[in-house]
Design a binder for these strands. Structure first.
Length: 223
DNA sequence: TTAGCGATCAGT
DNA sequence: CTGATCGCTAAC
């Protein structure tokens, strides 16, 4: 499926849920890294007081949100880099924040980028995730998943199936009319979902069915 | 569970 | 300059 079709034509909350279980891959200078997406958040643009494009706010920093579907939006918070994917048509500034993955590919590279931290702490948060990827600048900003070293595999064969999708209020949104809306989505029981207690982990990591881990060379990013 | 740290930008 | 922010870490 083409990126512009996947990232348009349905509510952003639905796109955010459909991304769960899909492989997020980055061909980094140090090697391929990636894993299955386990946590996302939807940001609904002008009307959403938690969104960077609230009330139509637009600047050089958040220009990517206004780009065509699949545009990568990198922003910095407290010295860490985080990533949204712009969804809906160009000029409609909605986005999906990638908050966590279950690490699958390039464990050694990610461990090194995270200074030897245990695998459970590698990618369970948006800042940690892109730190593990080795992203320390905004070089990927304004690129598109369709032709960037960062990509998401959209083929259904590559999507792991969550047993149950959980939802909650978005993390770090403390005020405003929409702070309580359940626009955070996650794979219930997966240990790489941020801020989940150990007792809620399940042995199957929340997957009804895991997709394959062997990636054919022709679908790797950058090809 | 909570306080420092910390970089950037919008608003005074 | 000040405050707030789509977090992380080490400490209690």
């Amino acid at each position: 499926m083409a990126y512009q079709d996947f990232f348009t034509g349905r509510p952003t909350q639905e796109i955010a849920q459909d991304l769960l279980g899909r492989p997020l891959l980055y061909r980094s200078p140090a090697g391929l890294v990636g894993g299955w997406i386990v946590e996302t958040e939807a940001y609904l643009g002008q009307a959403d007081n938690a969104a960077h494009a609230y009330q139509g706010h637009r600047s050089a920093a958040n220009e990517a949100l206004y780009g065509p579907p699949g545009t990568i939006y990198i922003y910095e918070r407290r010295g860490l880099f985080m990533c949204d994917i712009a969804v809906q048509d160009a000029e409609v500034p909605q986005g999906v924040l990638l908050r966590g993955i279950q690490p699958v590919w390039g464990l050694d590279v990610m461990t090194k980028n995270r200074e030897g931290r245990p695998v459970g702490e590698l990618t369970n948060g948006p800042g940690k995730l892109f730190r593990a990827f080795g992203v320390r600048d905004k070089a990927l900003n304004l690129h598109n998943l369709a032709d960037a070293p960062l990509t998401i595999l959209l083929g259904d064969d590559w999507q792991s199936q969550p047993r149950q999708i959980g939802s909650s209020a978005r993390v770090g949104v403390r005020s405003g009319g929409w702070h309580d809306r359940p626009y955070r989505f996650f794979v219930a029981g997966n240990q790489w979902v941020s801020k989940t207690p150990k007792r809620s982990w399940t042995t199957d990591q929340g997957w009804l069915k895991e997709a394959g881990r062997v990636l054919p060379a022709e679908i790797l990013p950058g090809k």
